[in-house]
Write a protein that binds this DNA or RNA. Sequence first.
DNA 1: GCCCAGGCAAAAGTATGACGAAAGATCGAG
DNA 2: CTCGATCTTTCGTCATACTTTTGCCTGGGC
Lengths: 273, 273
Amino acid sequence: MKGQAQSPALNGSAGYRMRGLQGRLIDALGEAIVSGRFQPGETLPRELELMAEYQVSRSSLREVLKVLGAKGLIETRQKLGTRVRRQDLWNLFDADVLAWHQRQGRGELILQDLIELRQVIEPAAARLAAGRAGMSDLRNLERSIATMRQSADDLTAYAAADVEFHMAIFTASHNVLFARLAHIVADFLQISFQIQQKALNDEDNRILDDIEGHQHVFDAINRGDGNGAAEHMLAVILNGKTSLFRAMGEPADPREEPGTSRPSGAKQKPRGS
Amino acid sequence: MKGQAQSPALNGSAGYRMRGLQGRLIDALGEAIVSGRFQPGETLPRELELMAEYQVSRSSLREVLKVLGAKGLIETRQKLGTRVRRQDLWNLFDADVLAWHQRQGRGELILQDLIELRQVIEPAAARLAAGRAGMSDLRNLERSIATMRQSADDLTAYAAADVEFHMAIFTASHNVLFARLAHIVADFLQISFQIQQKALNDEDNRILDDIEGHQHVFDAINRGDGNGAAEHMLAVILNGKTSLFRAMGEPADPREEPGTSRPSGAKQKPRGS
DNA sequence: GCCCAGGCAAAAGTATGACGAAAGATCGAG
DNA sequence: CTCGATCTTTCGTCATACTTTTGCCTGGGC
């Protein structure tokens, strides 16, 4: 399970299989919606047309639409048809929705928002962990760091151990909502590693710093030092952030324009194909 | 309650309608799973049996199962049947899943975890808002506070305005992930208000303090003071937390918190000078 | 005795056609 | 011009049949 394929759609987070007719259709339609091919507010083709376009039966199509509806992407009502919902209603904390964004241009935007979230969440999780970690939590953390040390030359193994460490922190926080975020962060980390793999190769002494950073987090948790744990965790994330941005060849500059709402401007797209 | 006018969490967040046969079945099965009637790892009855038990056709049942699968509750594979997934794979950031927890005993547990999350997220969102809020954001915030002031005697209107304020903060952070959390927090706040309605009635001078707290948050954002915004937001949340716990007649903190018996705002991120 | 290949069967996956229900659109009565 | 009954479109639900996947069992080979 640990070494699951790095297939683009990080499966394992959704309760359905990505393979098969329906799975592919979920993927295709989800990505089409996220990509903006179907804009929010727009009503996408009726069931009959979709059946024809994607060559599936009504049952399969409807099950697909139900899934997308459960993820908050669409909303379907009788007589009105199926409409794409406002973007802030999409369930962004869903691995699939995240992955669809990832495969579009917006991926990097989400990535930055995710980093901001991590900067806030993970120090807090570490702080909680410092006060609540049990024996098994500490053992998991220790083991992850040990694996990181041992596999400083094997980047794949290193990445896996790193992911394990961060997930163990969330688990040790004993807060189910934080624990849920762990999986989101884990997916994020896997994407990050894919991006910065080359950068890490270039200067792998950074890995040693990284390990030390993780060690400091663990030490703080181990002695119940919540503030210390939070601080060191923040440092770890910020380090990862800078090296990630370097690998992306992007300025570590956050967004500059907060997205001015343009009421007009969007000319109506013609219906049909 | 059947009143769907402002039925809190249930509809509005999911892309499907809660009414109708399927909606009811989604609700019933989801709640049954969350309640533990079907334990994680356990495989629930096959489609034929479920059809018989709930008196629905196979198509409807399968669409229901697809929804629950999309929310991460279950996982269905050929030949094996439908299994309940590990709890940490459930999509807790889904309004329905949260509502199902709410309707069980676990509701209060989640409530506490949610408060912890808010203590971390909302100050951060306020901090971001201080740096990014645009004109329309500030106007929305101002309007919410004004409405709060005007409706200090009408608790329902007050609650609505309060929710609006917190959502406006998230929006002003211009981070889509935070914006997504806004809806979760909004649902939480509505539940909170239902619980503490009587408590607020008892001593409604607390409302005035509450308003002042919100005003301070706005002022800080308005002058671009990130740290100030974060601190005041934390204060607002902690105030709400204590009054909520008082209303629930529960001990304020069953769990041990790491040295935050008196949560001083001093642990904020150190900012250069 | 262990292991792998192949077939069996059970359950989900897919397809089709029909009817029911909701809700926007239309048009006539007042 | 307003109101409301009716119409019509589209999703909601149902029933049934067929296909595909996959766990499991059987049996032969090493």
